[in-house]
Amino acid sequence: MVELIKDGKRVDGRDFEELRKIKIEVNPIPNANGSALFSFGNTIAIAAVYGPRSLYPKFLQEKEETLVRVRYNMAPFSTETRKNPGIDRRSIEISKVIKNAIENSIFSEEYPRTVIDCYAEVLSGDGSTRVTSLNALSISLALAGIKMKDLIAACTAGRIGDKIIVDLNQLEDNYGDCDISFAMLLNTNEIVLLQLDGEIKKDEFLYALKVLKEKCKIIREEQERKIKEYFEKNA
């Protein structure tokens, strides 16, 4: 068994409710309408948004709202042993839940008959890859000028024994007792992504949600700060 907690610290030396270092690059992909690189420690995701743009074939168009398409993908070199390139079942499921989060965070009725393509590539995976991707997409959407209810702040939490931890790394994801992926819009107090795997008691889960909300505030602030900084520099 892997020892995940030693002398009250986690394997990477963090406290239980401590996030890894957040790094954000704004608009690293000039071709996209909006793009961002987001990392929690060794987990790095780069995202790009193309759109709103016209959608063909025409029968795919939605009369009242935009169509959101999401592709979450892990680069073959992002994992410990090389991952076969291409979309597997896990990526399809993750793309689906990320799509749902985005659909519920933007004003889709503003862009009828169009498509917004959202792409996230995990460049380096050390746990929490889907929330890292969603944070990168949140900034990308904002940069693309898509009207949003709020920036989307996403984070993971988990349980190791009786301890609740946040921002899981790969070891904690693999060997912990429970992991939760979470994203919310703080403006509206709405959860837009919630997935749980592993075992947890109700009280522990509700506590984890409370911690996640706190951490999402920090993540949201960081997103906003970087976006403002970018516009000040490029004004």
């Binding site: 839940v97 749902n100 519920n104 965070s105 939760i180 919310m184 819009l185 509206t188 107090n189 709405e190 959860i191 837009v192 992504l193 919630l194 997935q195 749980l196 795997d197 592993g198 075992e199 947890i200 008691k201 109700k202 889960f205 949600l209 909300k213």
Partner: peptide
């Protein structure tokens, strides 16, 4: 009543 899986399948849910 131990929770062993959760998934938000569609839409958004008020935190409270």
């Amino acid at each position: 009543n131990t929770i062993c899986a959760i998934q938000l399948l569609s839409g958004k849910i008020d935190y409270d």
